[in-house]
Amino acid sequence: MQRTIFDTPIIRDVMPGVSRIFFKLIGWKVVGDFPAINKYVLIAAPHTSNWDFPVGLAICFLGGKKVYWMGKHTLFRGPLGPIARWLGGIAVDRRKSNSLVEQIAEVYQHSEQLIVAVPPEGTRKKVAQWKTGFYYIALQAKVPIVLGYLDFASKTGGCGKVFYPTGDIAQDMQEIQQFYHGIRGKNPDNQ
């Protein structure tokens, strides 16, 4: 994977302190620790607002974790492109039918440590159902799924349980989504 902001020693050492101040100012707190697992897919849900990114990034800094994230390809254009990649961004072009699941699963196979955050909604807008790419990435890469969350109602965020996909997607998705029942995004009408 490309170098990220976490690879810069000054930023890696300073950003947890900045994140603590940011959380104190906005009244947020982290609940739960990142699991002591080298590789996993991190669900980033619910995803209803642009605020999800700075709050989620602050949680990663506070947890001392290098987390890669997938974003719409248009975020990586122009002067913001290098910054987005530096922050761990992986451009995804949803207009193209490609083997993104296979590509990311292969990266997991060749990595000693890798956490990729995936918003299962795939957008900040309301969707009828979650996209399943995160599930199939975890299944093919043989890594667990960590249920990450941002609850704007309680101003808490962090990592919930570690879930190991069984291959029974209907049953597994039901169990995963049950965890998110009652967790409210910034714009709950978009959930």
Rank of each mutant, 00 (worst) to 15 (best):
A153V: 02
G182W: 11
G63C: 10
L42F: 01
L139Y: 04
Y40N: 09
S49C: 09
I169F: 03
Y135E: 03
I183R: 02
Q177A: 10
Q177W: 02
R94C: 06
G157R: 00
T156A: 03
P144G: 11
Y180E: 12
E175I: 09
K29L: 03
G182S: 10
H181A: 15
A45L: 05
I183Y: 04
K186V: 01
L25A: 15
A45P: 02
W130V: 00
G71V: 07
G182M: 10
S99D: 15
Q2T: 09
Q140D: 13
K186G: 00
A138Q: 01
V127G: 14
T74E: 15
Q177H: 09
F6W: 11
I169Y: 06
T123M: 07
G167S: 10
G71L: 07
G56R: 03
V41Y: 06
Y40P: 03
A128D: 15
D33Y: 04
P35Q: 11
N98C: 00
Y135M: 02
P54G: 09
F134I: 02
H110V: 08
F61Q: 06
V118E: 05
Q174E: 13
Q178D: 13
W51D: 05
R77C: 05
V118Y: 09
P119Q: 11
Y136F: 14
V67R: 01
G88R: 03
C60N: 11
H181K: 15
T132S: 15
F53S: 05
R184C: 08
Y149H: 07
W28T: 10
S111I: 04
D93A: 04
F163S: 10
P79E: 05
T156H: 09
Q178W: 00
Q113Y: 04
I37W: 07
L150M: 11
A117Q: 05
S99F: 06
A170Q: 14
V146Y: 01
V92E: 09
A58T: 04
Y164A: 10
G56S: 09
